[in-house]
Design a protein around this nucleic acid. Structure first.
Lengths: 153, 153
DNA sequence: CAATTTACATAGACAACCTATGTATATCAA
DNA sequence: TTGATATACATAGGTTGTCTATGTAAATTG
């Protein structure tokens, strides 16, 4: 039972490093977290603030702030939810979609030199990596950790 | 040639999400970036500021600031480099090592529920994920991207 | 020894978070 | 209907993490 002990740490460390490296080297016109939110909106479609917060694993005020920035850039639109006047439905604008695409290109460009050198089997390994992380995220989300942040009693 | 296009983005997205999820759910007593720096020091041993900056892919002032925080917490020691009076050699203190271990335990705890459900082959896939990301990082570091951030002329 | 380079620190700014709290709407219970 | 409570989002205020630009001290070089 020695393996799993370092495995989780190694995985998180590698993921964090790759992520950090990419965010440092890609020449964004869009800040990192805002790009993440654009991607989420693209994936989910028009969504409420609280839905976005949950999906992004961040707090509602964080999303509110980010949305204000996105809106100031003209990347998202807001509309009242006809079923609930308290709620706001956020959707990606055409400009937002374009911004997201530019981010994707920038990220791709930064990783391409490395990816281009890979052959078929190596690309398969990359796919495994993606799948593994997604699966772990789903599994982790399903089974919330015993002691998240609170110490309760 | 469709695959590599989304592949890089998918990989970065998954890595970022996993990383963000873990940092949000693990109950750290140590801030994320500081933990990263502690881990780096543990890995490299006593190092100069500029060495740490390069290894962490961050700027020298960033490392300087973080080291001030780590030092304030008693987690690192500084010593003048006997060979070069300009340079400082940073090393992990016993307390720093303990802090790092506590971070590792916290991270492990947060990922364990998911990892514990995996069998041998699934664990192998996790190892593949770790290796793939490390290899990409090395490859990317070796072959610096064509247009990193500057637009020059 | 003056000029340049190198190693680190400081200054100032912004992004990205969080918790605590406020405001408006919805719901529910008399 | 009204008052209490819950829900959805916004605001306030603070910490962390980073960057670029620049300053200071020591090393190197011509």
């Amino acid at each position: 039972m020695t393996a799993p002990t370092t495995l989780g740490n190694d995985l998180l460390r590698s993921a964090a490093r790759l992520s950090r490296w990419a965010s440092r080297h890609a020449s964004f016109d869009v800040p990192f977290a805002q790009a993440r939110l654009l991607a989420l909106l693209d994936e989910l479609g028009p969504s409420r603030v609280s839905t976005l917060a949950a999906a992004d694993h961040s707090s509602q005020p964080t999303i509110t702030t980010q949305l204000q920035r996105l809106e100031a850039s003209g990347w998202v639109h807001r509309a009242s939810d006809p079923d609930d006047a308290r709620a706001t439905v956020i959707s990606l604008s055409a400009e937002g979609h374009a911004a997201l695409e530019s981010v994707r290109r920038a990220r791709l460009a930064v990783l391409s030199p490395a990816l281009d050198q890979l052959d078929g089997p190596a690309l398969d390994r990359v796919r495994v990596a993606i799948d593994v992380m997604n699966e772990l995220l789903s599994a982790a989300a399903d089974a919330p950790v015993p002691h998240p942040t609170r110490k309760d009693g």
